[in-house]
Amino acid sequence: MSRYLGDEWALPYLDPQTRPFFTSGAIRIQVCRSCDTPQHPPDDVCHACQGMEFTHRDSAGLGTVHSYIVVHHAVHPALAERVPYAVALIALDDMPAVRVCGNILDLAPGDVSIGQSVRVVFEEIHDDETDEDLTIPQWETLTR
């Protein structure tokens, strides 16, 4: 599967905090063991109760476009041939306080708009350098 920004584009750094989001095949969000509050991006301390132990919860993967940008001027040489492209901010329907960035794979950049319903799809990539299998969350439009 080829990636939205091209197969040469940067890959995430995997550590205990980032690995669940990028390898689980789900929108896997950090949740505090003490107070059950989800938070994103993950942090070392729970922003609601200062708890320091965490578990995770999977979102059903349905969301709504909360905001978006259309990048016309490439700020990195690797993207010079890729502009214009859109980056959307998706609010998760089942975790309203959590918003994640992503690309909407089936829309031209000019067709993205606030309020669109989307569902998650995954870019499956093998990271040759680390030998990890990645499932990078991405989005496509959903007709409800």
């Binding site: 939205y4 584009w9 994103h40 991006p41 940008i69 990048v71 690309n103």
Partner: peptide, 13 residues
């Protein structure tokens, strides 16, 4: 990890 991965890179973005 959660933004530049999708092409959101600069202060302008």
């Amino acid at each position: 990890n959660y933004s530049a991965l999708y092409g959101l890179l600069s202060p302008a973005h």
